[in-house]
């Protein structure tokens, strides 16, 4: 039985990093921006965590350093997007190369392992049967929902996505908000890296490759418009769930990992076509 809770709980271990990263990505896409550097930021943070552990920095402090590295990476993206005013696609394409490159450079491409057991608990342990990463994700969902749907900043994000110039003239601190959301994206990438390393007990410069595309797929499947101005956290949750369940189902039912990309890709094209048809109906009505 695929739908059995115990099986679902076991399969859920693969989803948490994707789910976490989809939250800040939703905010960014709502402003008509994009962050392609998240997978590379994860790699950089993971390598920082590993290297810090190797020189006997306490594991808690190493994890904090990793998250700070993510913050710094996000701040740099944000500065280029908001203040140098380069298109986010270009900035984050550049830092996609740069961050992974730095991760490869400082680790010389070798894997780092041997993390303590109490650290593994962060990624693999559970409280009352609920997996630790799941609890962290739940907290993040609440925080991001409040930020997007109950705060002034949330309203500003939609406004910026609809019409950035008008938002500027209305006195919204557009630049500062951009800096904030790209920094959040970097920080969450750092957090995702910590969870990933804790789960796999290994840090290497190739982790998170292609993660940006999976995350964007999930966010778009969840109904957030790539042109900005529209999207909700609940939609993103459904998008993540749809993508995760499709993958795990294909892998569980046919035991064929090659089929997964094919199904997810077709699903995505179908979803965006249906969306475009529905939108046109909506416009006519």
């Amino acid at each position: 039985m695929f739908a059995k809770p115990s099986i679902q709980l076991e399969l859920s271990t693969h989803v948490w990093e994707l789910a976490l990263l989809a939250l800040p990505m939703t905010l960014i896409v709502i402003t008509a921006g994009i962050d392609l550097s998240i997978g590379s930021t994860m790699a950089l943070c993971a390598v920082v965590l590993g290297l810090a552990h190797e020189i006997h920095v306490p594991i808690g402090l190493s994890a904090a350093l990793a998250i700070l590295t993510g913050l710094a990476a996000g701040v740099l993206n944000g500065i280029f997007v908001a203040y140098v005013k380069v298109h986010p696609l270009i900035v984050t394409l550049a830092t996609l190369s740069a961050y992974r490159g730095i991760a490869e450079g400082i680790s010389l491409g070798r894997p780092i392992s041997g993390f303590p057991e109490n650290f593994a608990w962060v990624g693999q342990g559970n409280i009352c049967g609920l997996p630790m990463p799941g609890i962290i994700f739940a907290v993040a969902v609440i925080a991001f929902s409040l930020l997007l749907e109950r705060s002034v900043i949330g309203h500003a994000l939609y406004a910026m996505g609809h019409n950035e110039i008008a938002s500027r003239y209305s006195g919204l601190p557009v630049n500062r908000i951009k800096l904030l959301i790209y920094s959040l994206s970097g920080t969450i990438s750092g957090l995702a890296a910590v969870l990933f390393v804790a789960r796999r007990n290994t840090a290497k410069a190739d982790i998170g490759t292609g993660m940006e595309l999976d995350v964007i797929t999930a966010v778009v499947l969840g109904g957030t418009s790539i042109f900005g101005g529209r999207g909700r956290i609940i939609g993103t949750l459904l998008g993540v769930l749809l993508m995760h369940e499709t993958r795990e189902f294909v892998s569980w039912r046919w035991n064929n990992d090659e089929l997964i990309s094919l199904v997810v890709g077709v699903l995505m094209i179908a979803a965006v076509l249906v969306n475009s048809v529905l939108m046109r109906r909506g416009h006519k009505a």
């Binding site: 595309l213 997964i260 890709g265 995505m268 094209i269």
Partner: peptide, 17 residues
């Protein structure tokens, strides 16, 4: 009438599969 970044992202995944 679908956004090209999404269509070709879907195609990226489909073709690799």
């Amino acid at each position: 009438r679908a956004p090209s970044i999404i269509v070709t992202l879907g195609m990226l995944t489909t073709l690799r599969g």
